[in-house]
Structures are given as structure tokens and as C-alpha cells.
Design a protein around this nucleic acid. Sequence first.
DNA 1: AAGCAAGACAACCGCAGGTGT
DNA 2: CACACCTGCGGTTGTCTTGCT
Length: 277
Amino acid sequence: MGRAPCCEKEGLRRGAWSPEEDQRLAAYIRQHGHPNWRALPRQAGLLRCGKSCRLRWINYLRPDIKRGNFSADEEALIVRLHCELGNRWSAIAAQLPGRTDNEIKNVWHTHIKKRLEEDPEGGASAGGRQKKQKARKSKPAAPKNKKQAAAADNSETFMTASPGLSSSVSSGVTTFSTAAESTAAVSSGDTAATTSASPQTGAAKADTEMESFSSAEFPPIDESFWSSPDVVDMGLGAMDEELGLAGPPSAATRDEDMEFWLKMLLESGDMRDLSVL
DNA sequence: AAGCAAGACAACCGCAGGTGT
DNA sequence: CACACCTGCGGTTGTCTTGCT
């Protein structure tokens, strides 16, 4: 038999996600985890294919996603890792806490690659940004379209409707070096709305908006979340029983991996070399 | 003010590898 | 061992925003 289609095309929504869909997906995963992407949309009542749901969650809704501009260090690390790993974006992303492969891929193609082509020797320097890009980044964000504006409006509702989402659903990737970064990650439960509202300048905007989120609104991520009995109680247990599957894996290993590699790079002096870029 | 070109990023598509039966 | 299914990955596209003319 041939490969099964990724999804039943008929009747499934495509394109941009609505705030309602985001909310539904996030709420479902918060409650049940994602033991089966293929079955998830049906169980969550979403007219999307599992692939789409997975992508949305991983690249957008996951609470540990770090939004905002890539720092010079991050860009340098990307350059370095790209030299070593090539276009293995997922592997590169694994070394960058809170960054997704898709995001890194986009950044590579839109920023870094061009910069390296223009200035191979000093490509990764933060000061090497193109004029136009710099100007754009400084510009206040505006919703891309009505839907995204709605997403922004809905963001509050979203978070209210999903209390504890940002603090509860965490893969545990919390290797943040600063409180601001941590806050960014914690508040990224609102990422969907924030970036939907201003995906292009979400970086700059996020920096400022993140600060406006109080820790009371978005309590810090508890890395022990996934292993806590509460998680099982809130649905994973039932799901496990039903499907015979384990809950979301702990990210501790991934976290340790990242720290390990970052440490290795730093100790090997690679990062020093990169600082020149 | 309008049109155009380029930038930016979310999302889709198809393939490959892994896993269960 | 073969098959079927699922997940993850990388490439690519679509569309909106922004800056320039």
C-alpha cells in the first residue's frame, strides 16, 4: 500500500491559524499532551491535519519559545553550527534554547546568509545589519492583517481562557541566561497573539512587551511540570490509559545537551572566534 | 498619495527514518 | 521480514508589511 496521505484534504482548514484554533490546540495539548499528532486534531475538534497542528505547536505555541531578535551570540552560534552541521536546522535549533528550526532557517535565509555573502569576513556582526532591515526593526509593529489584529486582541482572552498554560506546559528548556529571556519564554504562551499581530517586528516589539508582562500574570516555568503528578491528573494519565502512551518527554536531556554543547563551544574557544564575526 | 520592490515570516509540501504489527 | 503508519525535517511558497521612488 502506498504512503498514507498526511491528512484528509477535504474539509480541513489551511492557512493562518485563528486565535480560536490556537487556543483550542494549546488547551488540548495542555490537558492531554500530544501522544498522537494524527489523531490530535480530531480529538481536539480542530479542522486541521496533524502535521499542521504539530508545526503550529512547535513553531508558535510552545511555551518555551523565545521570541525577539537573535542576539549577536545566537547568530554567531548559528553561523558556527551551520559550518559544522550544514542545513541541519533541527540540530542547530537544539543548541539554541527557545529557538525553532523554522525560525533559525528563516533567519539564516533572510539575514545571516545575505550578510555573509556581502561581508564574508564580518558577516555575523550585529552591526552588519542592512540599513533597510535595521530601519524596519525599529519601526513599531502593526498587525499584518485583520486576522492577526484579531489575534492580538484575542491574546488576553487566550491566556485567560488557558490559565496556567505558559507556566504549565513547558518542555523545560529553560537555559536562559537572563531574567528577561526567562520572562520572554514564560510569556511566550502569548506568543501566538503577539507574533500573529506583528510577526515581522515581533522581535522588537516582543522585547518591550515582554517587560510589560508581570510575573504574576505569567508565573515562572516550573521545569518539574511534566513530571508532576498534576500533569498526569489533568489528563495525561487518562490519555495514557486510553492510548497506552507515555506523556510528554522531559526536556531535561535536551536541556543538558544544549548546555553541554554551549559549554563545549565556549571552552573550545569557538565562541571567542565567533565574537569577531 | 500611489505603486513597486524587497524583506520577513508563517505555513505547506514531500520525503526519509523510525516504530509497531 | 515486510508492510503500514507516524513523526520530524528541510525546502519552498504565499502573503503581508515596510521603505523607497
